[in-house]
Amino acid sequence: MRNIVPVLTVVAAIFAIWYAAAVALNAPWAYNKAERAGVSLTTSELISDTWSQQKPKLPAPHQVGAELWNTTGEMVAKGRGFSKRSLIYHSWVTFSATGLGFLLGTALGIALAIGIVYNRTMDMSVMPWVIASQTIPILAIAPMIIVVLNAVGISGLLPKAMISMYLSFFPVVVGMVKGLRSPGPMQLDQMRTWNATPTQTFWKLRLPSSMPYLFTSLKIGMAASLVGAIVGELPTGAVAGLGARLLAGSYYGQTIQIWSALIMAATLAACLVGLIGLVQRIVLKRMGMA
């Protein structure tokens, strides 16, 4: 709670800088217009012009806010909340790919981690490649994956989800391996004195003690998987989704549209990560770990 004042100060400072930058970046266009109209601008006229242009270099926050409201709240009020022009529809498209990829990635990650912890051969041969796979800028081949999967007849949700999966499995593997190995020799010996089978050791000791690590990884994995879904939407020809909105906005110079898609993506990321944080709090509390 004691952080609230400093955080609000920083956020206020960001908004102040944003407004100031909007004036600075949009001023040349405003002067240009005024010159052609043969009038000279006073300071207040200049400021009001730079904050209300049609295609500004940097839209002011209230313009982005208005655009966001027009494409979400107002459309819901009109009962067209799911039409193709509404950001809710595009967010839903992106979210479905993110969610599917995240689930697949988490499942793959946990399976790999269990394999790595219980099988020495896998530990030594797969683990180095899991780490190496992340130094490869995989996002770069997103367009290729989409095109290739399209060619073999898989299109729509799955190709995007594959990219999200690839990005989100890594944090889960690394976190789960660390988590499953976190019980000390003392605890493992204790299980042995109780004559526990390996399965019992897994369910009653290793899995519960890996939970804090798992949730930390899930948060990173969720953020990564959203990035994957957005980038995966770029090469599909700007059909639907937040990534498509970004691309369409950049083609037609609709800066306000880009910014609103960006803010929407940020909100989506914050909600998803926050949701995992909430589940984490509840689960850890019921397990007596928090």
Binding site: R2, N3, V5, P6, V7, L8, T9, V10, V11, I14, L25, K57, L139, K219, I220, A223, L226, V227, I230, V231, L242, G243, L246, L247, G249, S250, G253, T255, I258, W259, A261, L262, A265, A266, A269, A270, V273
Partner: peptide, 28 residues
């Protein structure tokens, strides 16, 4: 003061899909 204000904001921003800034920066 800066530390208490900037760190939560920084942590938040680090989780956002920053890559979406790319079209804007290309425009600038």
């Amino acid at each position: 003061f800066l530390k208490r204000g900037l760190l939560p904001v920084g942590n938040f921003v680090a989780a956002l899909p920053i890559i979406g800034m790319a079209p804007i920066l290309v425009m600038w």
